[in-house]
Structure formats: C-alpha cells, structure tokens
C-alpha cells in the first residue's frame, strides 16, 4: 500500500523536545515530555481526551506556550522571540480539526495568502503552486468557490493544501477527521497517506487506527499529560505494554 522507497526515515533530527512542561494556571497539562522526531518520520499521537495530545502538537508551532524545557524545531529553539516563532511557523504546516479556512476568501485566495504575504512570492507563481496542490488533493475545480460552499471533507483537503503551499518541512495534524462525516473521512485520510508517501515529516493526533497501522512508523500513547508508551504500530497494537494502553486499545478497537 505505502510506497516504502520514499518513506525512508533519516537520521536528521526535525523536532527535539526535551523535559518540556506546561501548565494552564495550576493545572499541569504536559508533564516532562521528551520526544525526538527524525526527518521523514510519521508519528501518530493517540490517547483519551484531555490527555494533552493536542496541546503537545500546538506547542510545536507555539500556538501554546510551554513553561519549562526546550523545543527545537528544525534547529530553531522556540522562545518568546517573535522572529523565531514566525520562522518556525512558516516551516511547520498545521491542519485543524475544524479546518479554520478563511471564510471571506476564495479557495484560491486561502491558498495564496500566506505565500504572497509571508514568503513574498509573486502572485502568479503563488497561484500556480496553489493550483498544483489543489490538483494534488483532487479539487482544482473548486478554486474560485468560497469555503462555505464546500463539503467538510473538501474543506479539510483545502486546509491541507493551504498548509502545503507554504512548502513546510513538517506537518502537524490536530484530529483532522474528527469533525467529518464517515463518508468524508476516507478522502482526507487518502490525502494524508499520499502525503506520507511523498516523505513528509508528520505528527498526527488522530483516532484513526487504520491510518496509524498503514503509514505511521511510531505510535505515541499519551495519558494525563505524559507519554505513557511509544512503539512501532505493529508492536503497539499487538503487544501494548502498560495497562492504561491496553484499556485504551480495548475501548477503541473493541467494537
């Protein structure tokens, strides 16, 4: 199924998280997170709700601030320095649960906005890139419509294309299929799988275990703000080590 030749994981470090902690007021939401992501790796993060998995990936492009430890993305450490933050954000694409397309702009404008304003790409070139990625997610004919005219699955594919237009080196997915109808989940997952086949470094928060088995080379299980267990998907699903993981898997795979 997956194109193994391109999906090589390299030794180069893409993201390095060391002893990272985060609090919301008094609440200790992320506890001593240590994690290294190599270039080309595809990681699925799962866990019960409230386990901190969304917060973790939102820390990677600093939509959330961490209070202790370090996060180094592509050699740039995330501090309160706005220049570093903007640099990291333009290298890291993010796809949200609720798509977050810009409803006042057409699909094409949604895709070209950041390349034009952040990368200073000429408009013509940005539009060509945008059409290329729209074709890649298989909806070039929707380019001149507004997000409100598209189905949820189409909107999410546009959101993926929008991130890709910035030519990111890392993609973060925050429950990309949770807000979709069952019929539309597949089209979004197919898009993500083809992205994985192209060798993109990806971190996906998702409950789609089929996707994890098909493309992930590591599954990270989180509970109560900590990484409880991580392993290769085959091993993770067949022989979960901790009791908490076993319980979680029995609940989501049990029916």
């Amino acid at each position: 199924m997956a194109n193994a030749a391109k999906m090589q994981v390299t030794d180069e470090v893409a993201i390095q998280i060391t002893a990272m902690n985060k609090w919301y007021g008094q609440f200790h939401v992320l506890r001593d997170i240590n994690m290294t992501v190599n270039r080309g790796e595809r990681i699925v993060v799962c866990g019960p709700s409230g386990s901190g998995k969304s917060t973790l990936i939102r820390c990677i492009n600093r939509l959330e601030e961490h209070q202790a430890g370090t996060i180094i993305v592509d050699g740039t450490e995330l501090t309160s320095d706005l220049k570093n933050i903007d640099k990291v954000r333009s290298e890291v694409g993010m796809v949200f649960q609720h798509f977050n397309l810009f409803p006042h702009l057409t699909i094409l404008e949604n895709l070209t906005l950041a390349p034009i304003w952040v990368r200073k790409t000429p408009k013509r070139e940005a539009e060509e890139t945008a059409m290329y990625f729209l074709e890649k997610v298989k909806i070039p004919e929707q380019a001149l419509k507004y997000p409100g005219q598209l189905s949820g699955g189409q909107q999410q594919r546009v959101a993926i294309a929008r991130s890709l237009c910035m030519k990111p080196r890392i993609m973060l997915f925050d429950e990309p299929t949770s807000a979709l109808d069952p019929e539309m989940i597949k089209e979004v997952l197919d898009t993500m799988i083809s992205l994985a086949e192209d060798g993109m470094t990806m971190i996906c928060v998702t409950h789609e275990m089929g996707f994890a088995q098909a493309v992930a080379n590591r599954v990270v299980f989180m509970d109560q703000g900590q990484i409880v267990e991580q392993n290769e998907p085959k091993e993770f699903f067949a022989n979960p080590k901790s009791d908490r993981t076993k319980l979680f898997l029995s609940q989501i795979l049990g029916h």
Binding site: L63, R89, S90, M94, N100, L113, A114, V118, S163, M166
Partner: peptide, 8 residues
C-alpha cells in the same frame, strides 16, 4: 490560530 500557524 490559522493565521498564526501560516506564519502571518
């Protein structure tokens, strides 16, 4: 958040 994540 979407605007932030695109680096604007």
């Amino acid at each position: 958040e979407a605007a932030d994540s695109l680096g604007l």
